[in-house]
Amino acid sequence: MGASQSTRKLSVDNENAVQLSPEALNRIQAQLTANQQQEQSTPPPQPPTQYSPPQYAPPPVYYDSQKRQDAAAEEAYWARRIENLKRAHEKINSGMQLEYEKTLKDANKLFDMVQADKIVNKLPPCQEEKAKVLECYSANPNKSLLCSVIVNQFNDCVCKSRIAAVSASS
C-alpha cells in the first residue's frame, strides 16, 4: 500500500501565466543547453564535503546599462523636484521676511508715536499760567491780592486739563 510510487501527472491551465520576452527565453534555453552539455561531459558529481552556494550567471550588459539609465533618470527627477521645492520655499521665506520687516516698521512707527505722545503728556499742563502767577507774586511780594485774576486763570486752566485727561482716558 505505500510501497510503490505513484506516477500521476497533473496539468493546470493558468490564465495568469507569466509571459517572457524572446530574449529571456533565449537566455534560459542557452543556459539549459549549456548545463546539459556540461553534465554530459563531466563525470557524476561527488557529494560535496562543504556547502557551496549556487553560481549564477551575471546579468547581461544591456540589463546593467538599462538599470544605470533608470537610476540616472530617477536621480535627475528627484534633483529637479528638490530644486523646485527649494525655490518655492525661498519664495515663501522672502515673502514672510518682507511681511515681517513691514510689520516691524509699522510697529516701530506706532511705538515712536506713543513715545512722542508720552513725552508731550509728561509736561505738566498750564506752564505759561504758572509762570505768570510766579512772576506776579515775585513782583508783588506783599500784595498777593493783585495777582488774584492771574491765579483764577491758572485755576481754570488746571480744571480744564483735568477734565480733558478724564474724558481722554474713558
Results as ranks from 00 to 15, higher is better:
138 S>M: 11
121 N>A: 11
131 A>H: 04
132 K>W: 07
116 A>M: 07
124 P>H: 03
137 Y>V: 13
117 D>Q: 13
139 A>Y: 14
132 K>S: 12
134 L>P: 02
134 L>D: 06
145 L>P: 05
114 V>D: 14
120 V>G: 04
143 K>D: 11
142 N>Y: 00
137 Y>D: 02
122 K>V: 06
133 V>D: 06
118 K>E: 11
125 P>L: 04
130 K>E: 08
133 V>A: 00
136 C>M: 00
145 L>E: 13
118 K>W: 12
117 D>V: 13
144 S>V: 14
137 Y>S: 09
123 L>D: 10
126 C>K: 03
127 Q>L: 10
131 A>M: 00
142 N>M: 03
144 S>W: 14
140 N>F: 10
119 I>V: 11
138 S>H: 14
136 C>Y: 01
141 P>S: 07
121 N>W: 05
117 D>T: 00
142 N>D: 04
127 Q>K: 06
130 K>T: 07
132 K>T: 12
122 K>W: 09
123 L>Q: 13
115 Q>M: 09
139 A>G: 15
132 K>M: 11
122 K>G: 12
116 A>G: 06
129 E>L: 02
130 K>S: 03
127 Q>Y: 03
123 L>V: 13
124 P>Y: 02
141 P>G: 06
138 S>K: 12
124 P>D: 07
141 P>D: 01
127 Q>C: 10
133 V>Q: 00
144 S>P: 15
128 E>D: 11
142 N>G: 00
132 K>A: 14
118 K>G: 08
121 N>H: 01
129 E>V: 03
122 K>L: 04
141 P>Y: 02
130 K>V: 01
134 L>G: 03
117 D>W: 08
132 K>Y: 05
116 A>F: 01
118 K>M: 15
122 K>A: 09
120 V>S: 10
125 P>D: 02
137 Y>I: 12
120 V>D: 02
137 Y>F: 11
143 K>W: 09
117 D>N: 13
133 V>W: 05
119 I>P: 00
131 A>E: 08
119 I>H: 01
119 I>D: 04
121 N>V: 12
140 N>S: 12
115 Q>P: 08
139 A>L: 15
115 Q>A: 01
126 C>V: 01
139 A>E: 15
131 A>T: 00
143 K>G: 12
143 K>M: 08
138 S>A: 14
127 Q>P: 13
119 I>F: 01
124 P>V: 06
141 P>L: 03
141 P>I: 02
114 V>L: 13
124 P>F: 01
135 E>F: 07
141 P>H: 08
120 V>Y: 06
123 L>I: 14
139 A>W: 14
131 A>K: 04
139 A>D: 15
145 L>H: 11
115 Q>E: 15
144 S>C: 15
116 A>Q: 06
142 N>Q: 00
135 E>C: 03
142 N>L: 01
133 V>Y: 01
140 N>H: 08
118 K>P: 12
140 N>D: 04
119 I>Q: 01
138 S>F: 02
128 E>H: 10
137 Y>A: 07
115 Q>Y: 14
136 C>T: 03
136 C>N: 05
135 E>W: 01
145 L>S: 09
118 K>S: 15
139 A>R: 15
117 D>A: 14
121 N>P: 08
123 L>W: 07
133 V>T: 06
132 K>E: 10
119 I>E: 05
131 A>I: 09
127 Q>A: 11
126 C>T: 04
131 A>C: 03
131 A>R: 05
